[in-house]
Amino acid sequence: MLEITNLRASVEGNEILHGIDLTINEGEVHAIMGPNGSGKSTLAQVLAGHEAYEVDEESRVTFLGEDLLDMPAEERARLGLFLAFQYPVEIPGISNAYFLQAAMNEIRVGRGLEELDAMDFKKLLNEKMDLINVPRTFADRAVNHGFSGGEKKRNEILQLAVLEPRLAILDETDSGLDIDALKIVADGVNKLRSPHRGFIIVTHYQRLLNYIVPDYVHVLYQGKLVKSGRKELALELEEKGYDWLRQEQEALAATG
């Protein structure tokens, strides 16, 4: 469903992603790991359509058969792409319910469906809040405003549950969570796994992957995918640390 070919992206003339190739099929869960500053969030933001990043003309990304890079962010979302942000913004004055109803209806209209009225939406929102185990008080609270770090991450998962994307990118949804919160978040994600939905789980630590078991693991290092494998790769990384990668890459550079 997602095909990334030679993705190069830069900020203010500095190239951060140096040619990424990655294919994700329906129903697959891919983990992307890597040390801080390796470009994980950049990849997530570029896919979501952030305009601060310039993408190289040679780069190609197709999503559900459409050229993603030509689309503004809101159209990508309507097509079925979702990003759970590493740092979700706070929006005072706008309730979660109001925000999500607006988002959902934009997406529904984009897909040629009828808008949901406030009553039907409320019902759906209640179901989703129960499903992923967030208190119903989330509905009337302003989006992320005054939320704790853990609540913000759970709110991202609530949005994911409501908007039902085809591909969800979770950018360090585990960071800053204690083990209980981590389990709740992972549990929510597992409930949302489906044969038609793909996931990219971006994480710095292997910990989350004990709970959300990926089909594939990739290592992003200095803007390149330097290793790919099955879930065991995550354990190997955990054991050997990112230093192991650095040494391996330096050795490669010396011989290459």
């Binding site: 359509g49 952030h50 979302a77 990003l83 913004v89 607006a102 997406i107 984009g110 949005q159």
Partner: peptide, 12 residues
Amino acid sequence: PIVFYFQSRGID
């Protein structure tokens, strides 16, 4: 970043 957050949820 706030405007982008909306866009990422389908709102122009």
